[in-house]
Design a protein around this nucleic acid. Structure first.
Lengths: 259, 259
DNA sequence: TATCATTTGTTCGTATGTATC
DNA sequence: CGATACATACGAACAAATGAT
């Protein structure tokens, strides 16, 4: 039996005790935690209290509970996929997405019409409710089986000025870049990285475990006059991937936004 | 009273119903959800079931519960701070961190000695248990009050070869870059972005709300021969900030790692 | 295949503590 | 101070997943 002391609610004391036991190495990574019944005995508390404590550890991402088996100590392995967010400029004037060749399309891309939201409108420099072509892809990494959701958004306005886009809004980013370059645009890109908890829908398709955020990357393709042309979004479980960037020193003025 | 149907556990049906009500606009952002007692009546379930449902919505980041007041619909505002991860190369051969001037140091930087972990060792191209200088800073944004944790890690090996570093391992990144450049290094940087749930410690100092991940940025300063010299880490609540990068097309070979 | 013990998941009931207004 | 609302805690029962017999 292990003594429990002051700070706060009982279940938090239990949670703290277990957390400490994990971090101190008493419970090794990947190992099975004592069952709820044993923890009840060990700390002399009721089942709801034990469950509450374990729920807290779950929310921290410290343990992983499997129905009928038990609670496992999660190993804090870092992500296995490094998403190299660069763009390769090949000789023939064509662009290649890094690693683009190893991502399979798990499903047929689905093209549809939609409108800007507050978020996407802001990124594209448009208002709300502007019309767009959208193309959704479910990508799958051949080696690890990791899945990612990719979306391409093309404003009607841009598609009209570049007929090859309006003709096939569902082509791959590589092809889109090439088409824009051919239309006379000098391209550059900017990307913002956000993190948030998945909605149930995303949790399911991306197979995200408990208490795991997703990385949400938004890439803007800018053309001549620095006008935003295309928005791409990539969503992927933060347990599987990390985004990698190369930073160069430049003399451009830096910007800072506050909303 | 609202009818509840099949799929899955009762509390999940209730959660789904509330989620739908929120997304459909019945419960506006920032508005107060019905109290637990009212939800019990509305869906004809017991209190534990209602609480379980609300707990699920909390974990999704959809609602924010305040003791004694009620459950509020969280507005899905995007982050207000854009962290421009660039480096400005000024004329005098000095480097300026973007926005560096507006971050205050909330506390005195604390310098200490430490050793590489599996994670930091990997990034620095060192083994485990190699000796380092560490310097921790608690940064605070003057305008928004947002806090961020910054850490600089300097391998002994590097400090020895650059005396100005060993003399003051606690100087600001700007100064560190300048010192390295002065020592003859041609610098470039790489940065990886990860997301994870905060440990209780980080939750407290960064003032992170429920169900909110933190962004964890790791910046490596590379010197001549592309050798990793310095590791910086920045941790910040994902509700307050997003990382922004500029991407340029280049002809370098792309890399892809799998562990 | 079928059954059983173990373990977590779900749901009810009930009581009391604590924060807010 | 009281009313309301969420937080914590205990007890009990049955359902469902898992692995071994």
């Amino acid at each position: 039996m292990t003594e429990i002391q002051r700070p706060g609610a009982l279940y938090q004391q239990v949670a703290a005790a277990i957390r400490e036991a994990i971090l101190s190495g008493e419970f090794a990574p990947e190992s099975l935690l004592p069952s709820e019944a044993r923890l009840m005995a060990r700390y002399e508390v009721s089942r709801p209290t034990v469950r509450n404590a374990i729920a807290a550890l779950r929310a921290e991402g410290l343990v992983d509970v499997r129905h009928g088996k038990g609670s496992f100590v999660r190993s804090d392995g870092h992500p296995t996929l490094a998403l190299d967010r660069r763009i390769q400029h090949a000789h023939g004037g064509k662009f290649v997405m890094p690693g683009g060749d190893v991502w399979d399309e798990a499903e047929e891309p689905s093209v549809h019409r939609t409108r800007t939201t507050k978020s996407t409108g802001r990124l594209l420099g448009l208002g709300e409710e502007e019309e767009l072509f959208g193309c959704d892809r479910l990508l799958s990494d051949a080696a690890t089986g990791t899945q990612a959701m990719h979306r391409t958004l093309i404003p009607f306005e841009v598609a009209e000025s570049v007929p090859a886009l309006a003709k096939d809004p569902g082509q791959q980013p590589t092809a889109v870049y090439a088409v824009l370059a051919k239309a006379g645009h000098k391209l550059w890109w900017s990307e913002t990285v956000r993190a948030r908890m998945p909605v149930p829908d995303e949790r399911a398709t991306l197979q995200v475990p408990d208490a795991t955020p997703i990385l949400h990357l938004s890439r803007i393709t800018h053309g001549t006059d620095d006008r935003p042309l295309i928005l791409e979004e990539l969503r992927i479980g933060a347990d599987r991937a990390e985004a990698a960037y190369r930073i160069t020193a430049d003399k451009q003025p830096t910007r800072r936004r506050q909303t």
